[in-house]
Design a protein around this nucleic acid. Structure first.
Length: 426
DNA sequence: TCTGGGGTCCTAGGACCC
DNA sequence: TCTGGGGTCCTAGGACCC
């Protein structure tokens, strides 16, 4: 290859991210097993190294883990997304300084484009320096996997985690090393291969990542999908997935939550739906979009012993809007049509879809413009107050002192918003 | 008693059009 | 005997991810 740089990606991933965030502010828990719970303290969604070693499983319902928690003195935290988002930003900022072309893939992971860096510095050395810098400046430890494709970078990152001798940094640019690692990895550990596809692959005798890499891409395409075909190419070092540098605008916005307790009163569920509508409208305005399709759903627990009920309704608005009041009008009507007496509701939510940019939509000629007077100015004020961290302006339909609010019995304090409480490392 | 939330992409099939 | 064929749009559902 003349003139063309060989593509190189790094995947940087924070170790046990939520649990690490909590521990950062609790040095007394340094060697204590810690878990972080999902909304409503329902499931375990993150585990510290110690908790993993004790056999606490990801996604385990809290009630099933209670015995272990007592037995081993595991410390539980309710999820505190404001804290995690803040620490994530710190990590991403440092990564961006070292490798400006980066894709923030999730709250605790980023892909970096390292193409060309090999001419300046050995990639393994670069990775080690990057890790050291993030560890030192944030107190969050990361693993780094480097490879010619994103899919291989993911595997390199897994290996960095699995083999302590690597110092949590693995350079998988070399094809021989790729083959050796692929032969050791179960096919289910490949990025993009989930439970279903694993089963189907196994039925065809494809068990390791190397088996999948050696499969015929055309056959994989016809028997599975173009998605899996790309995976095969990527495992062979042919890059098919580029960095997504600019976050594509959302196609839909969902606000839903399981309730802190089962809801049987219509008014209570109505308030919850209004609250989700309000939150969805905020997200919509942050995206700088108008929406045209609104969907509301409510349901009982799928595990409910008594009657089960679940239903959803959508409506298309005459004109796209981002006005909370327009959306509340609509979700209220949909909710009333969905509601049935006599069930114990567990969950409800609001979904917005069919987005438009400001001023770029076809007016409905047979209706007057439904945008309310001064709507933009008013919504801006409401958003500003709600993001100021002091109290909130809310719409009366949300109710004043909601009974349905999330259970968060183990919430950590708002560390990162109070300067005095920041740990020394910062 | 108690089981997360929020997304993405792809495909198949039906409706509709010319 | 033999019922057009191809394109587009939309939706539902499946599969995956963190």
């Amino acid at each position: 290859m003349h003139g063309a740089n060989k593509a190189a990606f790094a995947l940087v991933d924070c170790n046990n991210f939520y649990a690490s965030c909590e521990k950062l502010f609790r040095p007394d828990l340094k060697y204590t097993p810690v878990v972080v719970l999902s909304n409503n303290d329902g499931c375990i969604v993150a585990r510290s190294k110690e908790a993993k070693a004790l056999g606490v499983k990801m996604g385990m319902p809290l009630f099933q883990a209670q015995a272990m928690i007592r037995q081993y003195g595991i410390v539980c935290f309710s999820s505190n997304y404001a804290l995690y988002a803040d620490l994530s930003n710190r990590v991403m900022t440092i990564l961006e300084e070292e490798a400006p072309r980066l894709e923030v893939y999730s709250i605790d992971e980023a892909f970096l484009d390292l193409t060309g860096i090999e001419y300046v510095m050995d990639l393994l050395t670069f990775g080690k320096q990057l890790k050291a810098k993030v560890d030192k400046w944030t107190g969050i430890t990361v693993g780094v996997g480097i490879a010619p494709t994103k899919t291989l970078a993911k595997l390199a990152n897994e290996a960095a985690k699995r083999y302590p001798a690597t110092g949590a940094v693995v350079d998988l640019m070399n094809p021989e090393r790729q083959k050796r690692l692929l032969s050791l990895v179960d096919v289910s550990d490949v990025w993009g291969v989930g439970r279903r596809i694993t089963e189907r692959l196994r039925a065809r005798g494809i068990r390791t990542a190397l088996d999948l890499a050696n499969a015929n891409p055309r056959v994989i395409r016809s028997e599975f999908s173009v998605v899996l075909e790309r995976t095969v190419q990527e495992l062979n070092g042919v890059s098919c997935l580029d960095l997504e540098l600019v976050r594509p605008t959302k196609q839909q916005i969902i606000c839903s939550r399981s309730f802190g307790h089962r809801i049987t009163e219509k008014q209570e569920l109505r308030e919850a739906i209004a609250k989700y509508t309000t939150r969805a409208a905020e997200k919509l305005r942050r995206e700088k979009r108008l929406c045209r399709v609104v969907n509301v759903f409510i349901r009982t627990s799928p595990h409910a012993q008594g009657g089960r009920y679940g239903n959803a309704l959508s409506v298309e608005l005459p004109n796209p809007t981002d006005d909370t009041r327009d959306l509340l009008d609509v979700t209220e009507v949909l909710f009333c049509r969905l509601w049935r007496d006599g069930f114990r509701y567990m969950k409800g939510g609001v979904m917005l879809a069919d987005f438009y940019e400001y001023g770029v939509y076809q007016q409905d000629l047979f209706r007057t413009n439904s945008m309310k007077t001064n709507s933009q100015a008013l919504m801006k004020v409401v958003d500003r107050i709600n993001h100021s961290g002091h109290g909130s302006v809310f719409f009366a339909s949300q109710g004043v002192s909601p009974q349905w609010a999330m259970k968060r019995n183990h919430l950590s304090p708002a560390y990162t918003t109070k300067w005095e409480e920041l740990p020394k490392v910062w």
